[in-house]
C-alpha cells in the first residue's frame, strides 16, 4: 500500500511534466494539424540559455523566467521561419518539416556551441524530501505537481473564459468557420505557438532543474514523451493530452518499481509494448476525437 502511494506521488510528479509537454503538442495539433517533433527543441534552446545564465552566476530565481521567455520566443521564431511556410500542407510534409527543424536546431548547437554535455548547478532543494508517515515525498515533486495544477487551471481559464481561448478552440474545431467569425489565422496560430512555448517553458524549468545539464540532443526525450502522451490521450483532444501525460508518467514509475530487477532497465521498452497494445485495442487513444469522414 505504502509502495503504491509512493509510486502514485512519484508518478504524478513525472506525469505532470509530461502533461505540460503533451498539452503544448496538442494545442498546436489542434490548430494546425501539425504534430510538432520540434517541441523538445524549446527545452534544448532554453536549456542552453539557462546553462549560460547559471554558469555566469545568475540565480535560479532569474533563470526560471529566462527559461520560459526563451522557450516562448523560440516557439514563435520556429513558427515564423519554418511552419508558417507549410500551413495547410499534407501530414507528410508537416511531420517532416518539424523533424527537420528538430535536426537543424540540434545541429546548430552541435556545431556552434559544443558537442559535449554542459553542466550547470541544480537548485539545492531539488533532492530534499519530507516525510508523511512512512511516505518519503520530494519537495521537487510537490512543487512540480502544484505548479502544474496551477498552470492547468490557468490554461483552462484562458481557454474557457478569454476571447483568445475561445478563438483557439473555435479554430481547432473548424478553422474556416472561425475565420468567418473574424478570427485572424495568423494571430490564432501564433497564439497557439506562444501558449505551447509557455507550457514547454514551465515543463522545461523542471526538466532542467532535475537534469542539471544540457546537450544538443537534449530535446529528444521531452519531445518523445510529449508526443507519445498526446497520442495516448487521443490526438486532437486537450484533455486527453493531459490525461495521457499523467498515464505515461504513472506507467513509467509503477513499472520501474514493480518489474523484476533483471528487466527494470527496460522499462521504456515495456511501456512501449503497452502503448502498442493500447493502440491495437483502442486505436484512437484514451479519449477518442470524432474524425468526420466527408464522403
Amino acid at each position: 500500500m505504502t509502495e503504491l502511494l509512493q509510486n502514485l506521488i512519484d508518478g504524478l510528479g513525472r506525469g505532470s511534466i509530461y502533461a505540460l509537454l503533451a498539452l503544448g503538442v496538442a494545442v498546436i495539433f489542434g490548430v494546425m494539424h501539425l504534430l510538432n517533433f520540434a517541441h523538445g527543441e524549446l527545452i534544448t534552446v532554453s536549456g542552453y540559455a539557462a546553462m549560460w545564465a547559471l554558469t555566469s552566476g545568475v540565480s535560479w530565481w532569474l533563470a526560471v523566467p529566462l527559461i520560459i521567455v526563451v522557450s516562448i520566443a523560440t516557439s514563435l521564431v520556429i513558427e515564423r521561419v519554418a511552419f508558417s511556410r507549410v500551413r495547410g500542407a499534407s501530414d507528410f510534409t508537416l511531420l517532416l518539416t518539424s523533424f527537420g527543424v528538430h535536426f537543424v536546431v540540434q545541429a546548430i548547437f552541435l556545431l556552434y556551441v559544443s558537442a559535449s554535455v554542459k553542466n550547470f548547478p541544480r537548485p539545492g532543494w531539488v533532492s530534499n524530501t519530507y516525510s508523511i508517515g512512512s511516505l518519503k515525498v520530494e519537495w521537487f515533486d510537490t512543487v512540480v505537481i502544484l505548479v502544474t495544477l496551477i498552470t492547468l487551471a490557468a490554461v483552462t481559464y484562458l481557454l474557457q473564459r478569454t476571447m483568445f481561448g475561445l478563438s483557439l478552440r473555435a479554430a481547432a474545431a473548424d478553422f474556416d468557420t472561425a475565420r468567418l467569425m473574424g478570427v485572424n489565422s495568423n494571430n490564432v496560430i501564433r497564439g497557439a505557438f506562444a501558449l505551447s512555448g509557455l507550457l514547454a517553458g514551465i515543463a522545461g524549468v523542471f526538466w532542467l532543474m532535475r537534469a542539471g545539464q544540457t546537450q544538443p540532443s537534449a530535446g529528444i526525450d521531452p519531445m518523445l514523451k510529449g508526443v507519445l502522451a498526446a497520442l495516448i490521450g487521443g490526438l486532437g483532444s486537450l484533455r486527453g493530452a493531459v490525461l495521457g501525460g499523467f498515464v505515461l508518467g504513472l506507467a513509467e514509475v509503477v513499472l520501474r518499481s514493480q518489474l523484476p530487477d533483471s528487466i527494470a532497465s527496460l522499462t521504456e521498452g515495456v511501456v512501449f509494448a503497452l502503448i502498442a497494445l493500447l493502440f491495437i485495442f483502442r486505436p484512437g487513444g484514451l479519449i477518442t476525437v470524432a474524425h468526420a469522414e466527408r464522403v
Binding site: 504534430l35 517533433f37 501530414d91 511531420l95 497520442l231 484512437g284 487513444g285
Partner: peptide
C-alpha cells in the same frame, strides 16, 4: 486516427 498516429508509433 490517420497516418500521423502511425508515424508516432514508428518514432516510438
Amino acid at each position: 486516427s490517420g497516418s500521423v498516429a502511425a508515424t508516432v508509433i514508428t518514432l516510438a
